[in-house]
Design a protein around this nucleic acid. Structure first.
Lengths: 177, 177
DNA sequence: CTCATTGCAAAATCTTTGCACGTAA
DNA sequence: TTACGTGCAAAGATTTTGCAATGAG
């Protein structure tokens, strides 16, 4: 039988090539936004939620639920996935996190971090994710949206290719591919 | 497990706003490419495959498996989804179709149509999909890939917003949102 | 005849949900 | 006290696969 969806450990090996959090991500700001949202909706602050949220804040960008759950369970092994799913949905709802679905069937989450309009370069061989920013593309996007009468809300710009490391490796092996 | 009929009809309501096929998509070229691929792999030409492939060629762009299956079953009600999945995977393998995953959990397929490097504007309210082309963005993409030492293979550029029709509707209703 | 292909149902995978119990406020 | 939250397991939703039967070459 062929590969099933996640028997392949390589798939979650996401080498965050540019993993910095944009000099001082304003976590306090996000904590406030979350608290506000929870207050408004009458939601409660629990040990699990706090743990999951802080783990998310500390995690590398583009964490998958699985990765996050693993991290969370190091602190408290009894946390279930449902709670992680629900908490991240909550973060997404109040604009603290973005849901990202790259083509591999996993949902990843990233800090909303409005300031940084970055997009992604994804290596088709090693799955590493590199962020980039390009204001000129942002400008063109607005121009295009306007051209079609759209009111722009968000965008997703992903470029797939072979990263420098994999190119080097391929060259060393003898240029297959 | 078992039957999974769509519970949410809205999700598959994809109004193709710009549904043209870029003046004369060279179907003959794609048929040849497919035949070649099949010959090389010793694959066989069956009624179902031919039906599915031709239905795909005739379908609006960005068809989901379900939509395609429905179309196919109008001709031959006995075709199963597995066959459609397998056939579209085949088309993707030999470069005749692209797999597209917009964020709604459905996989859609589109004619490869190399010539037209179009991207997508997606309405967050009615899910309509509009294609656009912008050579200046293509150029910038190459520039960025080069900047990071990537060898670019493909890209995905999706802009999410509210389409003119929904904006009009919203304005008429009284500017919610 | 041989082996790829099909249709069906079951499995696999990721995500959501129902429910009884726990717990923040 | 009173809903909301949690964990678990079961259900959902989409895609893939095993298998016996079918059919192309």
């Amino acid at each position: 039988m062929g590969e099933r969806r996640a028997p392949d450990p390589e798939r979650r090996l996401v080498n965050e090539s540019s993993d910095h959090r944009h000099d001082a991500p304003n976590l306090e700001h996000f904590r406030e936004r979350l608290q506000e949202h929870m207050a408004k909706k009458g939601l409660r602050s629990t040990d699990q939620r706090r743990l999951i949220v802080e783990t998310f804040f500390a995690a590398p960008n583009h964490v998958s639920i699985e990765e996050l759950l693993a991290q969370v369970r190091e602190q408290d092994p009894k946390v279930g996935y449902a709670t992680v799913y629900r908490t991240l949905k909550l973060l997404a709802e109040c604009g603290v996190a973005f849901e990202r679905k790259f083509g591999d069937g996993l949902t990843r989450y990233e800090l909303a971090d409005d300031e940084a309009h970055h997009d992604h370069l994804i290596c088709v061989q090693c799955s590493s994710i590199t962020e980039f920013e390009e204001p000129r593309i942002e400008t063109l996007q607005e121009e295009i949206a306007h051209r079609y009468g759209f009111e722009l809300r968000s965008h997703k710009h992903e470029m797939y290719g072979v990263c420098p490391d994999c190119l080097k490796a391929a060259a060393a092996t003898g240029k297959r591919n």
